[in-house]
């Protein structure tokens, strides 16, 4: 009976949550649609109102996305008890935490490890995925559909399910406690996504361009590197960036496959930061370290965002 009441209550709560979520999102959605429909030119009060609503929605989304990071920056600049006072505006500008973090050799070493692991993972994943997706998208062979589904199925398993198996494999390969163990496992986990995205992109490239290249005497390798890669540039950047972020943030494998301090990657290094005593969690340095390792990602995204030029293929065929 008690379980039933409990379940019922959970159901009611879920319904309330759903109702609130819908009630909140629907006007937002409507505001976006209405603003889009009216366009930039509409100067009537209704038009201005909906445009205002549109920017309000944008502002809210940005706020939700950016606030945690903003709060991390605020906290990283505070020390002592100031850390535990809630404040929304900068009150102190103390770089002590950053100094602390950057003088920990383990952390600096971990950043280096992370950069190495993430970069090699991206390179390996892209090389394998580009060649695989060319075959999957363009070469007719028996069992192609099945192979594609199998590749997708690989990503079905949660990390924890394959952890022990992968651990055995890495041990057997003699990669335990080396960056290569992480590179191997991250590549395995990003490949399905990368291959799928690139296969879709590759399939959409006009077949005539490939045939023209064949007539020009291009081998498959030349077609991939000189003709397709430049056209796939936006897709490569997107998937490469996601693979990089995935490898950069990964925690479970990094914790399991490395043991010594100088082989750790950043997420693990931050997690095992120690304070002055066992009871103290060093929030200040943790926040400073988090900010430091997040900034490169933000810079990467901002840089490549400009490079992702839509419609690069426009003009090659028809149009």
């Amino acid at each position: 009976m008690e379980t039933l009441t409990f379940l019922l209550w959970q159901l009611v709560r879920f319904a309330i949550f759903l109702a609130v979520a819908l009630a909140v999102t629907f006007p937002f959605l409507y505001a976006v649609l209405a603003a889009g429909e009216r366009g930039e030119e509409d100067r009537s009060p209704a038009g201005l109102f909906w445009r205002g609503m549109f920017w309000l929605v944008v502002g809210l989304i940005v706020l939700v996305a950016v606030f945690p990071f903003y709060y991390a920056i605020l906290s990283s600049l505070e020390t002592g008890t100031a850390l535990f006072r809630v404040n929304y505006l900068p009150e102190s500008f103390n770089l002590a935490n950053y100094r602390d973090v950057l003088t920990r050799p383990a952390f600096v070493r971990a950043v280096g490890n992370s950069v190495f692991v993430a970069t090699i993972t991206v390179i390996a994943a892209l090389i394998l995925a580009v060649t695989a997706s060319y075959a999957l998208a363009r070469v007719r062979f028996r069992g192609r559909g099945l192979l594609l589904m199998t590749i997708l199925a690989v990503s079905m398993f949660p990390q924890i399910a394959v952890l022990s198996g992968l651990y055995e494999l890495i041990n057997w390969l003699g990669l335990y406690n080396t960056p290569w163990s992480l590179i191997l496992s991250y590549t395995i986990f990003t490949l399905p996504f990368t291959v799928w995205v690139l296969t879709t992109f590759m399939r959409d490239l006009p077949i005539e361009i490939e045939e023209a290249a064949i007539m020009d005497g291009a081998s498959p390798w030349i077609i991939i590197t000189r003709v397709f890669m430049p056209l796939l540039w936006p897709a490569l950047v997107t998937t490469g960036l996601l693979a990089f972020i995935g490898a950069w943030n990964e925690f479970l494998f990094a914790l399991t496959f490395t043991i010594s301090e100088n082989q750790r990657t950043v997420p693990v290094a931050i997690a095992i930061f120690t304070g002055a005593s066992v009871q103290e969690i060093p929030w200040g340095p943790i926040m400073a370290a988090s900010v430091l390792v997040t900034v490169p990602l933000i810079v990467l995204v901002l840089v490549f965002q400009r490079k992702i030029v839509a419609g690069l293929t426009a003009g090659g065929v028809k149009g």
Binding site: E208, E211, A212, M215, P230, T313, A314, G316, V317, K318
Partner: peptide, 13 residues
């Protein structure tokens, strides 16, 4: 041989 395609098939980049 050289071939001219219906959709031109120029290399866009």
């Amino acid at each position: 041989i050289a071939m001219v395609f219906q959709s031109y098939a120029l290399y866009p980049h």
